[in-house]
Design a protein around this nucleic acid. Structure first.
Length: 593
RNA sequence: GCUCCGGUAGCUCAGUUGGAUAGAGCGACGGCCUCCUAAGCCGUAGGUCGUGGGUUCAAUUCCCGCCCGGGGCGCCA
């Protein structure tokens, strides 16, 4: 927020104290104090080397005489300033293009960013955890784009490995040749069902094994995996896959095809899009050459047991194996390879991974290795770690069937939004009911997930999530729709000609305009911190300020045409910002609700 | 054991370079539709900011100890 009176005050103070380069911080005045804007003089005490109370007195005395200022009151070290309505409007919302334009960063600060998110496995459908990832990834990507960066969204699908073999084995044994079409089910769910079926069979064999050999009772299921018949069969299938066995490959292609078709549908409903999807089946062999290179450079060394390792200087990183003693890759080897591949393919200034916080250590190691290998861009790699989603009943566990399925959740929210819409519509069933239900349901879900700070482990209460009142996406959508409705009623002619902003000055009008003025800085901060919750919080504040204004100040029925015009114009600004902000979070809007 | 994240109202969460009397939503209670969409607005109740020290004019915020909860520390991914 930049006000003329603040600039004048800065010039005055620089002059009076002989200081260069002084910036005066102007904040919104807290609601329990009288004023619009507050100057915190504690922050001026150091640069001016004066007692903050004295500065406050001086600031208040200067501002009291300023033409834009109606009242300036010093309380302790704070100066609460009541600004003339016209001046507030002139310095905040009058120039819409300038307000929106300020969101775009200067060219020198714009970056080319590559963001990877979603990264699902092809053995089961997506659940609420993936939904948080997808929503966060899309929101961060479009937020970064909105402030002027060039963003490439990519996915890296884990389409090979033991997990998919499990589903394949179960399908071979229990599938009876069904297809998604024959059972009328999404392909990812069909494959996921076999993954669950596999686990049942494995458990069965495991308990039989433990019964036969009581000495194994204490062993973990991982340790006993190859002791079971189905475990060995799975291992054999994995090896056959790696050798390119035609039959195994054909089944793999078929089942992955089902999963991808299912994912496409889930992504479509969420509005998730990627410029490219890397497949692990095509990249898993990458990375070994980098190990060779690092070995030659002395970054890695071969341990007596044959494993290739790196010892970090940082004791919290310790030591990490990068190649097994048999020469095969580990997880991090592949990740080194794909990181280089992505760097080569896109030449980004920065790579971002949206991956759960349980992998924080993994990424620290990954980045440290790349740094040790001498890649200067390794300093710009970012793991955007986000927290898990828990349910009131506890953690989500696929095997225990306690996951909230993404598609089911979408359906449920869609239905509730439809009911809520019909309930409010009365006899007039809207023609675009489907569209409304979709936007409201998905908007409610995304907004709720984005509202909490990404790094916090969040609690998802399915019951509470189905409500559309209070601090929710629909609340914001509702404010948007009401303004749209007002503008429709007013007609285009109502927005023609000059606006006399000086007719505004009610506290609700000023608060609203001041809130609008915060938009660019909020967007910058959210983008810089990769934190979409700053935007949701802001949009709620803006929508609340609008609702208060709307309650207190009649717009279309205002006393004079000039007042109608100015209030309508102010409301239009709010609508523009709400739409812009929601779009930056990949949440759609509605013209009527 | 080492390490990372968290502990704020009954519940879910804000509070980010240390600043005024710690906020919101839900839930509870009480008001507001002859008036631009009540998915709304207004009010009441609800807090030793986990705990004990320290730094500071000023600490929910920074530092240290402790308690509680969660994650991570593999030749798994």
């Amino acid at each position: 927020m930049k006000f003329s009176f603040v600039s004048d005050l800065e010039a005055h103070l620089r002059d009076a104290f002989g200081t260069d380069d002084l910036t005066v911080p102007a904040e919104l005045c807290p609601p329990n104090f009288a004023g619009d804007v507050t100057i915190n003089c504690f922050l001026l005490a150091k640069p001016l080397r004066r007692n903050p109370m004295q500065i406050a007195e001086q600031v208040a005395a200067y501002l009291a005489k300023h033409p834009d200022v109606q009242q300036a009151e010093a309380i302790k070290a704070f100066v609460n300033v009541t600004v003339a309505g016209g001046a507030v409007m002139r310095d905040t919302v009058a120039d819409e293009a300038a307000l929106l334009g300020a969101v775009t960063l200067p060219e020198a600060d714009q970056r080319k960013v590559l963001i990877e998110f979603s990264a699902p496995n092809t053995n089961k459908p997506q659940h609420l955890g993936h939904v948080r990832n997808n929503t966060t990834g899309m929101a961060i990507a479009s937020l970064l784009e909105r402030v002027g960066n060039t963003v490439s969204r990519i996915n890296l699908v884990n389409d090979r490995g033991v997990h998919i073999c499990k589903s394949m084995i179960a399908y071979q044994r229990f599938g009876k040749g069904i297809t998604p079409e024959s059972v009328g089910k999404k392909g990812d769910h069909v494959v996921g069902d076999f993954y669950v079926r596999y686990d049942q069979e494995f458990r069965k064999q495991l308990s039989a094994l433990k019964e036969a050999k009581p000495e194994l009772a204490e062993k973990s299921s991982d340790e006993l995996f190859l002791e079971t018949e189905i475990g060995r069969a799975t291992q054999d299938m994995l090896l056959a896959w790696e050798k390119g066995d035609p039959e195994v490959r054909a089944l793999w292609e078929t089942m992955n095809g089902w999963v991808f078709a299912g994912f496409a549908e889930t992504y479509r409903r969420m509005g998730v899009e990627f410029v490219h999807t890397y497949l692990e089946s095509q990249t898993y062999m990458l990375g070994k050459d980098i190990i060779e290179e690092g070995l030659a450079k002395g970054v890695f060394y071969k341990r007596p047991d044959g494993a290739t390792v790196i010892d970090f200087e940082d004791p919290t990183l310790g030591s990490k194996v990068v190649l097994r003693s048999d020469g095969t890759s580990v997880y991090i080897t592949q990740d080194l390879g794909t990181t280089l591949l992505k760097q080569h393919d896109y030449q980004p200034d920065q790579q971002i991974w949206v991956v759960g916080d349980e992998q924080i250590y993994h990424f620290r190691v990954l980045f440290a290795i790349l740094k040790a290998l001498g890649y200067d861009w390794a300093d710009n790699l970012v793991h955007m770690a986000y927290g898990m989603v828990n349910l009131p009943t506890g953690k989500m566990k696929s095997r225990e069937g306690t996951v909230v399925d993404a598609d089911d959740l979408f359906d449920e929210l869609d239905n509730l939004a439809r009911e809520a819409t019909l309930e409010r519509a009365g006899a007039d069933v809207p023609e675009d009911l489907d569209e409304r239900a979709r936007v409201i349901g998905m908007g409610a879900l995304k907004f709720m997930l984005l509202k909490v700070n990404p790094k916090t482990t969040m609690m998802f209460d399915p019951q509470a999530s189905l409500r559309f009142e209070g601090d929710t996406g629909p609340y914001v959508l509702y404010a948007y729709a009401r303004i749209s409705s007002m503008l429709r009623r007013a007609g285009d002619a109502a927005l023609a000609g000059e606006v006399d902003w000086s007719v505004l000055g009610a506290k609700e009008e000023k608060s609203l305009a001041l809130r609008c003025a915060q938009y660019p800085e909020i967007m910058h901060k959210a983008a810089a911190n990769l934190d979409a919750s700053l935007v949701t919080g802001y949009l709620l504040d803006l929508a609340k300020d609008f609702s208060k204004f709307y309650q207190a100040c009649p717009v279309l029925a205002a006393e004079t045409p000039a007042l109608v015009r100015a209030r309508l114009e102010l409301a239009a600004r709010v609508r523009t910002l709400l739409g812009d902000g929601l779009r930056a979070l990949t949440i759609g809007t509605l013209e009527s609700m």
